Computed example of a mutant assay.
Amino acid sequence: MDLEMITLSEMVREQYTTTTEGTRIERPENQSVYKIGIYGWRKRCLYLFVLLLLIILLVNFALTIWILKVMWFSPTGMGHLHVTEDGLRLEGESEFLFPLYAKEIHSRVDSSLLLQSTQNVTVNARNPEGEVTGRLKVGPQMVEVQSQQFQINSKDSKPLFTVDEKAVVVGTDKLRVTGPEGALFEHSVETPLIKPDPIQDLRLESPTRSLSMDAPKGVHIQAAAGKIEALSQMDIVLHSSDGTLVLDAETMCLPKLAQGTQGPASSLQGLYEICACPDGKLYLSVAGVGTTCHENSHICL
């Protein structure tokens, strides 16, 4: 049994050795070769696309440099516009094509602030709802203000001129009108004092209507270095509701008073007395030893 196993083993070994040493493994003649990568027209298109992207990148970079140079970009701002801690600072002249919204606008210390337009300059104030509450419009022919109240103050915040729907208030010590024809008032004027320049005459005139001066405690008219003249087409009325009318002067002339009948003896004297009618009309009567007003009272009729 053992001898048969040894013999079978040797026979298998010899068969394996002969088969291994002399055997050649034949490979197929037509084998496909697969190349890894991009070749041909795809490769050319890829290179062309990369070149186009490179050109676009260079053009964008050049345009960016040009824009930065033209707009004057800098670490502090753009051109004449500089960013500071307090806000924006603009140097030189600037033109705004659209509305400008700002809380405060100041000029430099050594220059003034100029707002200029070929049509008009309009400044609007709006409430939180966006409605216009105040408007200042400077046009070529008129300056227009739309507001509930218009007020001009002095440097110490004293109101100089105030206008609202009910009244106009002038807060200065003196209102001076320099027009050659003076000031024109269509309605009443209330003031404690009216006086002209030292070298000018004061003239109160109403060409087509009447001129009335009223005061609860009296009207005081004074000409320190000249005369007072009152002219009227009709009547001049001096009326005092509670008091007397006093005409105090060294000489008082009434040249156009009506005169009573003169006698031959009285005409040589040239003396007259002033008489008053019940309606207040004055007339002259020849002076005598006693009053002669009753003799010429027919003038009052």
Rank of each mutant, 00 (worst) to 15 (best):
I194V: 15
I56C: 07
G263K: 08
G260P: 01
S266T: 14
R135P: 00
H239T: 11
K43D: 07
E93F: 10
T84H: 04
Q200A: 09
L81A: 14
R108S: 11
E93D: 12
A224S: 09
L268E: 13
K227I: 00
I36S: 05
L202G: 08
D201H: 14
H298C: 05
M234H: 06
K166N: 14
V33S: 04
T64D: 15
M234R: 14
R44T: 10
Y47I: 01
A287C: 11
P140I: 06
V168F: 09
S111P: 00
D164S: 14
V50R: 09
D279S: 13
F61H: 06
Q141D: 13
D214H: 03
L81N: 10
M78N: 04
L51K: 06
P99L: 01
M142Q: 12
H80W: 01
V168D: 00
L231R: 09
L245C: 09
F98G: 01
L115S: 07
V237R: 06
V143I: 15
S210D: 04
E273V: 11
H106S: 13
S112G: 13
S212N: 04
S212I: 03
S154I: 09
Q148D: 09
R13M: 05
T23D: 06
G179L: 09
E85G: 12
V123L: 15
T19S: 11
L245Q: 11
K256S: 07
N127C: 03
L54D: 07
S32K: 02
V246N: 14
T251N: 05
D156P: 00
P99S: 07
L115A: 03
L53N: 05
T292D: 07
Q233G: 11
Y272V: 15
H220M: 05
L51M: 09
V163N: 02
Q259K: 14
L268S: 04
Q119E: 12
E190L: 04
I228N: 07
E250I: 02
V177T: 12
L202Y: 06
R42W: 00
P216R: 04
Y16K: 10
C253F: 01
S267A: 13
A215Y: 02
H294D: 04
K166V: 15
G171Y: 07
I152E: 00
S9N: 08
H220C: 01
L271W: 02
T191P: 01
H106L: 12
P255H: 14
R89K: 06
T122H: 02
K217R: 05
A225V: 09
M234P: 01
N127A: 06
R209A: 07
S74I: 08
L136R: 04
L100F: 03
S157P: 01
Y34I: 14
E229T: 12
E14M: 13
N124K: 12
P128Q: 08
A223S: 09
S94P: 03
F150W: 08
C293S: 04
L81I: 15
A276I: 10
E26P: 01
T191C: 08
A249W: 08
M142N: 07
C253M: 03
V289W: 00
H239R: 15
L88I: 15
L97I: 12
S74Q: 13
V59D: 11
D214E: 07
D156Y: 05
A287F: 12
V168A: 06
